[in-house]
Lab assay of single mutants.
Amino acid sequence: ERVRARYDYEAQNEDELSFKKGDIITVLEKDDGWWKGRNGKEGLFPSNYVEELE
């Protein structure tokens, strides 16, 4: 599954994923509120910062 970033997100910890608004992220795992994904790097990000691609 792929999602698009709705906002910029700056990683707060080294296991998190940074991205810019409009970036496409491949979702690897979904957990409550935090998803694991890849966009060149791999890490956790808040699920409310992304939207599913149509």
Results as ranks from 00 to 15, higher is better:
Glu1Trp: 14
Glu1Tyr: 14
Glu1Arg: 11
Glu1Gln: 12
Arg2Gln: 15
Arg2Leu: 15
Arg2Pro: 06
Val3Gln: 04
Val3Lys: 05
Val3Met: 10
Val3Phe: 13
Val3Gly: 03
Val3Thr: 04
Val3Ala: 07
Val3Cys: 11
Arg4Pro: 05
Arg4Ile: 15
Arg4Val: 15
Arg4Ala: 08
Arg4His: 07
Arg4Met: 12
Arg4Phe: 08
Ala5Met: 02
Ala5Ile: 02
Ala5Leu: 02
Ala5Phe: 02
Ala5Pro: 04
Ala5Arg: 00
Arg6Val: 14
Arg6Trp: 06
Arg6Pro: 05
Arg6Leu: 15
Arg6Ala: 11
Arg6Ser: 09
Tyr7Trp: 15
Tyr7Glu: 11
Tyr7Ser: 07
Tyr7Leu: 12
Tyr7Pro: 01
Tyr7His: 08
Tyr7Ile: 08
Tyr7Phe: 12
Asp8Ser: 09
Asp8His: 04
Asp8Glu: 06
Asp8Gln: 05
Asp8Lys: 03
Asp8Cys: 09
Tyr9Gly: 01
Tyr9Ala: 01
Tyr9Lys: 03
Tyr9Ile: 01
Tyr9Asn: 00
Glu10Asn: 12
Glu10Gly: 07
Glu10Ala: 09
Glu10Ser: 10
Glu10Val: 13
Glu10Arg: 10
Ala11Glu: 05
Ala11Ser: 06
Ala11Gln: 06
Ala11Leu: 05
Ala11Val: 01
Ala11Cys: 04
Ala11Pro: 05
Ala11Lys: 05
Gln12Leu: 09
Gln12Gly: 08
Gln12Ile: 08
Gln12Tyr: 05
Gln12Asp: 06
Asn13Arg: 11
Asn13Asp: 08
Asn13Leu: 05
Asn13Met: 07
Asn13Val: 05
Asn13Trp: 06
Asn13Pro: 01
Glu14Val: 10
Glu14Pro: 14
Glu14Thr: 09
Glu14Asn: 11
Glu14Trp: 11
Glu14Met: 09
Glu14Cys: 08
Glu14Ala: 14
Asp15Ala: 13
Asp15Leu: 13
Asp15Cys: 14
Asp15Trp: 15
Glu16Leu: 02
Glu16Phe: 06
Glu16Pro: 01
Glu16Cys: 06
Glu16Ser: 03
Glu16Asp: 04
Glu16Gly: 07
Glu16Met: 05
Glu16Gln: 14
Leu17Lys: 02
Leu17Pro: 01
Leu17His: 00
Leu17Arg: 01
Ser18Leu: 01
Ser18Trp: 03
Ser18Ala: 05
Ser18Arg: 02
Ser18Ile: 01
Ser18Pro: 04
Ser18His: 04
Phe19Pro: 00
Phe19Tyr: 00
Phe19Ser: 00
Phe19Met: 06
Phe19Ile: 06
Phe19His: 01
Lys20Ala: 09
Lys20Cys: 10
Lys20Asp: 03
Lys20Arg: 12
Lys20Val: 08
Lys20Phe: 10
Lys21Gln: 10
Lys21Pro: 01
Lys21Trp: 05
Lys21Val: 10
Lys21Asp: 03
Lys21Tyr: 05
Gly22Phe: 05
Gly22Ile: 03
Gly22Arg: 00
Gly22Trp: 05
Gly22Gln: 03
Asp23Ser: 07
Asp23Cys: 07
Asp23Val: 04
Asp23Asn: 05
Asp23Pro: 03
Ile24Val: 09
Ile24Arg: 06
Ile24Leu: 09
Ile24Thr: 04
Ile24Asp: 02
Ile24His: 04
Ile24Cys: 08
Ile24Ala: 04
Ile24Pro: 03
Ile24Glu: 04
Ile25Val: 05
Ile25Lys: 01
Ile25Gly: 01
Ile25Glu: 03
Ile25Asn: 02
Ile25Phe: 09
Ile25Arg: 02
Ile25Ser: 03
Ile25His: 00
Ile25Cys: 05
Thr26Arg: 06
Thr26Val: 12
Thr26Glu: 13
Thr26Leu: 13
Thr26Trp: 13
Thr26Lys: 07
Val27Arg: 01
Val27Asn: 01
Val27Pro: 01
Val27Thr: 01
Val27Ala: 03
Val27Tyr: 03
Val27Cys: 04
Leu28Phe: 08
Leu28Gly: 03
Leu28Asp: 03
Leu28His: 04
Leu28Thr: 09
Leu28Met: 09
Leu28Glu: 03
Leu28Cys: 07
Leu28Arg: 02
Leu28Val: 10
Glu29Cys: 14
Glu29Gly: 12
Glu29Pro: 02
Glu29His: 14
Glu29Asn: 10
Lys30Asn: 04
Lys30Val: 07
Lys30Trp: 06
Lys30Ser: 05
Lys30Cys: 06
Asp31Ala: 15
Asp31Pro: 08
Asp31Thr: 15
Asp31Cys: 15
Asp31Lys: 15
Asp31Glu: 14
Asp31Val: 15
Asp31Arg: 15
Asp31Tyr: 15
Asp31Trp: 15
Asp32Arg: 11
Asp32Met: 11
Asp32Ala: 12
Asp32Tyr: 09
Asp32His: 11
Gly33Arg: 12
Gly33Ser: 11
Gly33Val: 14
Gly33Met: 14
Gly33Ile: 14
Gly33Leu: 13
Trp34Phe: 09
Trp34His: 05
Trp34Ala: 04
Trp35Pro: 01
Trp35Val: 04
Trp35Gln: 02
Trp35Cys: 05
Trp35Arg: 00
Trp35Gly: 02
Lys36Gly: 01
Lys36Ile: 10
Lys36Ser: 06
Lys36Phe: 15
Lys36Arg: 15
Lys36Gln: 05
Lys36Asp: 02
Lys36Val: 10
Gly37Pro: 01
Gly37Gln: 00
Gly37Cys: 02
Gly37Trp: 00
Gly37Val: 03
Gly37Thr: 01
Gly37Lys: 00
Gly37Asn: 03
Arg38Met: 11
Arg38Glu: 10
Arg38Gln: 11
Arg38Ile: 13
Arg38Cys: 11
Arg38Phe: 15
Asn39Pro: 00
Asn39Arg: 10
Asn39Gly: 08
Gly40Pro: 04
Gly40Ser: 10
Gly40Lys: 09
Gly40Tyr: 09
Gly40Cys: 10
Gly40Glu: 11
Lys41Gly: 10
Lys41Pro: 06
Lys41Arg: 13
Lys41Tyr: 09
Lys41Gln: 11
Lys41Cys: 08
Glu42Cys: 10
Glu42Pro: 05
Glu42Gln: 09
Glu42His: 06
Glu42Phe: 09
Gly43Ser: 01
Gly43Ile: 00
Gly43Phe: 00
Gly43Tyr: 00
Gly43Thr: 02
Gly43Asn: 02
Gly43Glu: 00
Gly43Arg: 00
Leu44Ser: 10
Leu44Gly: 07
Leu44Arg: 15
Leu44Ile: 15
Leu44Lys: 13
Leu44Cys: 11
Leu44Glu: 02
Phe45Thr: 04
Phe45Val: 04
Phe45Gln: 00
Phe45Glu: 04
Phe45Ile: 05
Phe45Lys: 02
Phe45Tyr: 00
Pro46Trp: 05
Pro46Ser: 06
Pro46Gly: 02
Pro46Leu: 07
Pro46Cys: 08
Pro46Ala: 04
Ser47Cys: 13
Ser47His: 09
Ser47Arg: 09
Ser47Val: 11
Ser47Trp: 09
Ser47Glu: 08
Ser47Lys: 10
Asn48Phe: 12
Asn48Arg: 12
Asn48Leu: 12
Asn48Gly: 12
Asn48Gln: 14
Asn48Ala: 14
Tyr49Ala: 13
Tyr49Glu: 01
Tyr49Ser: 08
Tyr49Leu: 12
Tyr49Gln: 06
Val50Leu: 03
Val50Gly: 03
Val50Asp: 00
Glu51Thr: 10
Glu51Pro: 02
Glu52Asp: 13
Glu52Thr: 13
Glu52Met: 12
Glu52Lys: 12
Glu52Gly: 12
Glu52His: 12
Glu52Gln: 14
Glu52Ile: 13
Leu53His: 07
Leu53Phe: 14
Leu53Val: 11
Leu53Trp: 12
Leu53Ser: 06
Leu53Tyr: 14
Leu53Glu: 08
Leu53Asp: 07
Leu53Arg: 04
Leu53Lys: 05
Leu53Cys: 11
Glu54Leu: 11
Glu54Ala: 12
Glu54Ile: 13
Glu54Arg: 13
Glu54Thr: 14
Glu54Trp: 14
Glu54Lys: 14
Glu54Gly: 13
